[in-house]
C-alpha cells in the first residue's frame, strides 16, 4: 500500500453535506475491472455538463463552470475540504480510487461515512476529522486566499494552516502505523495464521454448521 507521512498541498472546498459515493464516482464507471484510471470521472455528474461513459476521452467534454474543482484557482489541489457525512452510500472502493487517481491525498471533514472512511486507509488516502468550527474556519480561509496550502503531518497528527495554526486530529494507532509505513495488512493478518487456525478449531466444535461447505 502507498505510504502517507507528511504532505503540503493546495486545498479545495466542496461545500455540501452528505456527499455520497454515487456523486464521487457514478455507477457506470464501476464496470471497470481495474483499480486505476478513475480520476477523469471523479465527481463526473457535478464536473461535466453531459453524461459520461466508461472508456470515454473526457478532455473534450463540456465542463460545469460552477463546480469548484473546475475553477482555475483550485487546479492541482490535493487536499479536499468537505462537510459532514462525506462518502455516504455504497461500499465501492472506486470512490477512494477515483480521489487518489485525481490527485487527492487527504480529505478533511467534520464526519465521514464508516465504509468510505475505512476504504481510504486501504489506499494510502488520509481522511481527517476536525470539529465543525475548525472545518468552518478552513472553509473561510481557503475562500479568502488563492493557492491556500495546508500541511498535513500524520506522525504528529496535525493539520497546519499557512498562518501556523495547528489543528490536531485523531487516528487509530493501527491505521496510522499501516499508513506511515505503507504496510500490506493481508500480510500482517497472515502473520496471525496460527491464531486463525486455533479459532477455527475451537469454533468448529461450538458451531459446526458454520463450517459446512458451500458446494
Amino acid at each position: 500500500m502507498k505510504q502517507f507521512t507528511l504532505m503540503t498541498g493546495m486545498a479545495a472546498p466542496l461545500d455540501r453535506a452528505n456527499v455520497d459515493t454515487d456523486m464521487i464516482i457514478p455507477k457506470q464507471f464501476l464496470k471497470s475491472i481495474k483499480r486505476s484510471g478513475f480520476g477523469p470521472n471523479l465527481f463526473d455528474e457535478l464536473r461535466y455538463m453531459d453524461e459520461g461513459q466508461p472508456d470515454q476521452d473526457c478532455s473534450g467534454r463540456p465542463l460545469n463552470p460552477d463546480f469548484v474543482l473546475n475553477q482555475a484557482r483550485y487546479q492541482g489541489a490535493s487536499v479536499l475540504l468537505a462537510r459532514e457525512n462525506f462518502g455516504c452510500g455504497s461500499s465501492r472502493e472506486h470512490a477512494p480510487w477515483a480521489l487518489d487517481d485525481f490527485g487527492i491525498r487527504c480529505v478533511i471533514a467534520p464526519s465521514f461515512a464508516d465504509i468510505f472512511y475505512n476504504n481510504c486507509f486501504k489506499n494510502g488516502l488520509l481522511p481527517i476529522i476536525l470539529s465543525d468550527t475548525q472545518v468552518d474556519q478552513l472553509f473561510e480561509e481557503v475562500a479568502a486566499t488563492v493557492g491556500y496550502q495546508l500541511m498535513v503531518d500524520l506522525e504528529k497528527q496535525v493539520v497546519v494552516t499557512p498562518s501556523g495554526i495547528e489543528m490536531e486530529f485523531r487516528v487509530d494507532s493501527f491505521r496510522k502505523h499501516c499508513l506511515l509505513h505503507g504496510l500490506d495488512d493481508i500480510g500482517l493478518t497472515l502473520g496471525f495464521a496460527d491464531d486463525i487456525a486455533a479459532y477455527e478449531l475451537r469454533r468448529r466444535q461450538e458451531a459446526p454448521w458454520l463450517f459446512d461447505a458451500i458446494k
Binding site: D114, I115, K122, F174, I186, T189, I196, E200
Partner: peptide
C-alpha cells in the same frame, strides 16, 4: 453482516478475517 470495500474482499478471501474495530 456488513458491507466491505474491495481491499477487504481480498483480505477475507486470503485470511477469512477482517481487521475491525468494535462499533
Amino acid at each position: 453482516a456488513h458491507g466491505i470495500g474491495t481491499s477487504e474482499v481480498e483480505h477475507v478471501l486470503a485470511t477469512q478475517c477482517l481487521i475491525a474495530k468494535k462499533m
